[in-house]
Design a protein around this nucleic acid. Structure first.
Lengths: 73, 73
DNA sequence: ATATTATGTAATATATAGTTTACAATATTG
DNA sequence: CAATATTGTAAACTATATATTACATAATAT
């Protein structure tokens, strides 16, 4: 469950605590998501998107080949 | 938690049962998601994307004004 | 070096996503 | 219309996302 949350957060100069506050979850939750050890809820994904100014695809779409791309598009 | 899963599914001529099978969840889960009464997991969102050949943004990004667009982009 | 800030991670608890079974209601097709 | 397929929904259950508390380590600053 890889993603680019960490990269986007640091681009914005935000700390995990700040992102956690802005998205209304715990610092631990953010940490686990960035580490790819968690499968977040769509609502939380969207909150994170708003907080760092990126879209779902930009943050959570798995890059080519990383997962099955069988029949996409 | 509105989305365009139903529309995308019907475009593909799929039934809820077929989409459920292809994504490995129950028909009820699909129904609730389409009805906007559920907050699905990112993993499930991605499964649905693969199944209907759309991206996260296409299926789950909230349309302009529907939610706070405060500071996106 | 030593505070202080930022992050990783574990244990236990709680909320909620997803299942199972079942039945009703609405299409759709003969 | 009647038969069948498709969808909505409810209750009780299970799995897991997230919270809470706590401690350890890495980084940065003083």
């Amino acid at each position: 469950m890889m993603n680019s949350v960490k990269h986007a957060r640091m681009e914005r100069g935000m700390t995990q605590v700040q992102l956690a506050e802005k998205t209304g979850v715990t610092r631990q939750t953010i940490s686990l998501i960035e580490k790819g050890k968690y499968n977040p809820t769509l609502k939380l994904c969207l909150s994170i998107c708003y907080a760092v100014g990126k879209s779902l695809d930009q943050l959570f779409w798995v890059n080519e080949g990383e997962k099955r791309e069988e029949n996409y598009r």
